[in-house]
Write a protein that binds this DNA or RNA. Structure first.
Lengths: 105, 105
DNA sequence: GCCCATATGTTGTCACACCACATATGGCCA
DNA sequence: TGGCCATATGTGGTGTGACAACATATGGGC
């Protein structure tokens, strides 16, 4: 599934609070009930890009007897982009539905 | 808008009958009420790919005082792929909605 | 001792969306 | 007459982004 939705999904997950990468992936898979699964090769590079653009902020957290984790939180800019993305995707879905007649309900 | 939806959209338009490339693009823009617009650099290469995969079939139609047009029709294979695509996109949308909470209705 | 779940990452490849450009015809308007 | 717009088809080059495969590291269960 290559649809360019990673940005929207990650930002939406982080809206609920701080999460580390692996957790973000699990949340997306869980919340979508398996419909959308994330691959590491998409996930981590996308997290760096989002951080580079200032939409999310990460910090390393180390605990004894655990691999280090990088926790991300949504920035103010990130929240703005999330709102814009939501709106764009909503419009896109409506358009697709009109053209391809997906939804019966 | 780069979302990989071209295949679904084109097949859905051709489901209604024969159309030439430019007409397909106009139909998509019209039916989506401007939400989705197609660019020639995506449209024609995609039509060739679909034809190469046997999902659509094209034939040249020449009329005096008109530029030649290539009309495409949906093949049986194409109809099958369209059904599969519809199902996939439906699932994808449901997943996105669950994760990103787009739809209130 | 091995595999699995957790957790993070890189390299290389491929599909595809788009910008810019190109060609060709007819109609409208100044 | 000349230019622009709509129609209609196409190409070359660029960039993004999704994924396969591989790599590293820790703890727990069998």
């Amino acid at each position: 599934m290559k649809k360019g939705s990673a940005e929207l999904l990650i930002l939406a997950i982080l809206e609920d609070g701080q999460r580390h990468g692996y957790e973000v992936a699990r949340q997306i898979e869980r919340r979508s009930r398996g419909a959308i699964s994330f691959h590491v090769a998409s996930l981590y590079p996308m997290l760096y890009r989002l951080e580079g653009r200032g939409l999310i902020e990460g910090r390393w957290v180390e605990k004894a007897g655990q691999r280090r984790r990088r926790y991300y939180r949504l920035t103010t800019d990130g929240a703005g982009v999330l709102a814009a993305q939501r709106s764009l995707w909503q419009e896109f879905f409506t358009g697709i539905n009109r053209v391809a007649r997906l939804r019966n309900a």
